[in-house]
Design a protein around this nucleic acid. Structure first.
Lengths: 164, 164
DNA sequence: TATTGTTATACTCTATAACTATA
DNA sequence: TATAGTTATAGAGTATAACAATA
């Protein structure tokens, strides 16, 4: 049977903003998910006008900083499998923002590059991204808090693939 | 045209563990996404034997702590829309872990409860969750670091719905 | 008219298997 | 046999629209 001693109906406001799970410590995972959703939502909203997704923006930046990278390697840096990287990059290539080139040494391999149009767009996007980052630095309270958060988040990834 | 001055091919190891984006500061969003993926992956692995997803585990805990809540309210606490909450709860109800009850006052409303089987399962799951949390507390270095992280993550959610 | 729960549906993200052409 | 890139596809997760019953 069920817990008959429990109240039949409890629909009182769970929390000020309904974020019960946060205040009651329902684990790091849920908190991470909610925080990530908040940041990703803001990013998507700001980049909607340019029709650029978060992964594509990071991709553009990576291509400028490290031109000639292989698809598999870029995908790994973005946390995207090489199979899912294809349509992601195709979206940029179709718009003339980036392109694939063949590699002399290995006829299987490809090298990825940013186009001039991609570089121009990236310059504009970085201003939008700066505003996005500033918003969350403000929410955190200080630049030092942001640095601390970044450090802590980096630690969570350690040993991600190592067996217990 | 493209950046012809760039090297034709650069496939040198981007980073020790290919996490280029982390060390080069590609924004809070990517770091959050990667950290969330690491935590969620560990959770999924540990709960695979019991065929329980993260949202369902949180749901079970919420039902025990606040029995009789309305679906819409529970969904909000979990960050799930009421339309997507239905199949999530159905999965638990079909297995006899939770159930819906009608509410006397309002004939539209439903009240959600944990079953005895659900409570028994939850007790076992909490031990698994404790090991999961301990793993990441260890990665963070200390319990204080975990507390600091939780505080910082909570700040990111502030004003999530407020217009700029 | 608004609200609660629900269905149907679509779109994105992610994951697996298998193919090709090279090596 | 192994690797790089790709294709096709299936499964989650998440989104909107609309409906029935009730307020």
């Amino acid at each position: 049977m069920l817990s008959d001693s429990a109240p039949i109906c409890d629909n009182s406001p769970v929390m000020p903003n309904d974020n019960t799970a946060q205040s009651l410590d329902y684990g790091l995972g849920l908190l991470l998910r909610r925080a990530q959703a908040a940041v990703a939502g803001d990013f998507t909203q700001r980049f909607a006008a340019d029709n650029i997704r978060a992964a594509q923006y990071t991709l553009l930046r990576l291509l400028r900083d490290r031109p000639g990278l292989a698809p598999t390697r870029v995908g790994a840096a973005l946390g995207v499998r090489r199979t899912n990287f294809v349509p992601l990059f195709d979206g940029l290539e179709r718009r003339g923002l980036a392109e694939r080139r063949r590699v002399p040494g290995d006829r299987r391999a490809m090298a990825l590059f940013l186009s001039d149009a991609g570089e121009a767009l990236l310059l504009r996007l970085e201003a939008v991204a700066a505003a996005h980052e500033a918003e969350f630095t403000a929410r955190l309270g200080s630049s030092a808090a942001r640095t601390a958060l970044i450090d802590l988040l980096g630690r969570l990834e350690r040993d991600a693939e190592a067996g217990a």
